[in-house]
């Protein structure tokens, strides 16, 4: 019974961990990233048509499958457009985008939703998890959108929204052609002194804190050891010093090691550091005790 409970507890914990791990890469990390309401002279779909679109962005470091989730323009109908399951293209790679055409023709494929934008009014678009209840992200697109100018997050996944005269469907809103961190170091720390000071401080700090904690742990351990020794009534025990020679300690350690490793069967031998002297005697010689096989 006890074993069963233990086993089940382990399974439960494992399931919980897996569920937590899976949560980290679920659709909750998707964001509505950029929208274009009026498409007059811009990006065309596979049918050569120009329509408005919504771009979603995967903010996580894991692949997210949006198949089975929902897009809607109706607050009262979160399940308005179910994104089809089983399409490999709905698997969005880390920090990548997916584009949905807001053309009202769902029969055109997975990435064509069954609603359209109204160019003269405020528009609403929302993305729901596969349960149809969990709102992942929503956006109110202000009225008065201009043709071929998209509305999107200044930088992918971040909060600030701006208008883009140069639209960026299925690609980064902010084009990264340099590495900001490296440029910053090149500009402000061309000799590397700043990096050296910062990094060495962190290394020292980390190991110093570890040192400090283990110094305290050592104190506690020594105190606990003393208390145990006193409780056991061990008299004359001196901490840190011993009259036992190194060789004896080595012999004891070897014996304990052998015992713990359990590499041998139990043998009737004595482990000693004394020299073993065996004087020759014909009574103990193997020559006389071995028997030759009879010749045929």
């Amino acid at each position: 019974m006890y074993k069963m409970i233990r086993k089940n507890t382990g399974l439960l914990l494992l399931t919980l961990l897996l569920a937590t791990g899976a949560q980290a890469q679920r659709v909750t990390s998707m964001r509505i990233n950029e929208v274009l309401v009026i498409n007059e002279d811009n990006f065309v779909d596979d049918y050569g048509k120009r329509n408005g679109w919504v771009e979603l962005y995967n903010t996580s470091a894991g692949t997210v499958n949006v198949g089975g989730c929902f897009l809607t323009d109706d607050r009262n109908n979160p399940k308005k457009y179910p994104i089809p399951k089983g399409d490999v293209l709905t698997r969005i790679s880390p920090r990548q985008h997916v584009l949905f055409w807001v053309d009202g023709i769902a029969s055109h494929g997975t990435f064509h939703v069954n609603f359209t934008f109204d160019p003269d009014k405020e528009n609403y678009v929302a993305f729901y998890d596969s349960d149809g209840k969990t709102l992942v992200d929503e956006l109110v697109i202000p009225a008065g959108q201009k043709a071929d100018i998209s509305y999107g997050r200044k930088k992918d996944g971040e909060n600030e929204w701006v208008y883009f005269t140069k639209v960026t469907p299925s690609t980064n809103n902010l084009t990264l052609d340099t590495n900001e961190k490296i440029d910053n170091f090149k500009l402000n720390d061309s000799r590397g002194i700043g990096m050296t000071i910062t990094a060495m401080s962190v290394v020292f700090l980390g190991l110093f804190v570890l040192y400090y904690i283990f110094k305290q742990v050592a104190r506690l351990a020594i105190a606990a050891g003393k208390a145990r020794a006193q409780k056991a009534g061990v008299a004359g025990m001196h901490e840190g010093s011993s009259d036992i020679s190194g060789e004896v300690l080595a012999a004891i350690s070897t014996a304990l090691y052998e015992l713990n490793e359990d590499v041998h069967d139990i043998e009737r031998t004595v482990l000693t550091i004394q020299k073993v002297k065996r004087n020759y005697s014909p009574w103990s010689s193997k020559i006389y005790s071995l028997r030759e096989n009879p010749r045929k």
Binding site: A199, V203, F204, G206, L207, L210, Y211, Y212, K215, A218
Partner: peptide, 12 residues
């Protein structure tokens, strides 16, 4: 544990 600090210094 103070030997940890030597491990830190060598990272120079």
């Amino acid at each position: 544990p103070k030997l940890m600090l030597i491990g830190a210094a060598a990272q120079f």
